[in-house]
Simulated scan of single mutants.
Amino acid sequence: MGRSQETYNKKEREKKKLQKKEAKAKRKAERQANSDSTGDNFTYVDKFGNFSDTPPPPAEKTKAEDIIIGTPKKEDRMDEEELATERSGVVTFFNDGKGYGFIKDKVSQESIFVHVNNTTETIIEGNLVTFEIEKGPKGPTAVNVAVKR
Rank of each mutant, 00 (worst) to 15 (best):
M78H: 00
G97T: 03
L128I: 14
F102N: 12
K104C: 15
G139E: 14
V90Q: 15
F131S: 07
T71M: 10
K73L: 08
D76W: 14
D79E: 09
S108N: 03
V116P: 01
R87Q: 04
V129Q: 01
D96S: 13
V90M: 14
R87K: 15
K104W: 05
T122V: 13
T71Y: 08
I133L: 09
D79Y: 10
G97A: 11
V116W: 05
D105W: 01
F131Y: 12
E125H: 07
F94K: 02
G97W: 00
I124D: 04
F131N: 05
E134P: 10
F131G: 00
G70F: 01
G136W: 08
E121D: 13
T119I: 08
I124G: 08
G136I: 07
R87V: 03
K106A: 15
K73E: 13
L83H: 06
V114Q: 03
V91Q: 09
N95A: 10
E75D: 05
S88E: 10
S108F: 11
A84P: 04
H115C: 11
D76A: 12
D79W: 07
G139I: 08
N127H: 05
K135N: 09
R77V: 13
P137K: 11
N95S: 14
P137F: 08
I112L: 01
E81V: 11
E110Q: 13
M78A: 11
T130L: 06
F94E: 04
V91A: 06
T130R: 08
D105I: 05
T85L: 12
N127K: 04
K104Q: 05
F113N: 10
I133G: 09
V116A: 05
E110Y: 06
D96H: 13
K106F: 11
E121H: 01
F94Y: 12
D79I: 04
K138N: 12
E86Y: 14
V107Q: 11
K98S: 13
R87S: 02
G70M: 00
F131C: 00
A84H: 14
G99A: 09
M78F: 05
F131E: 07
K135V: 07
E121P: 11
K135G: 09
T92K: 14
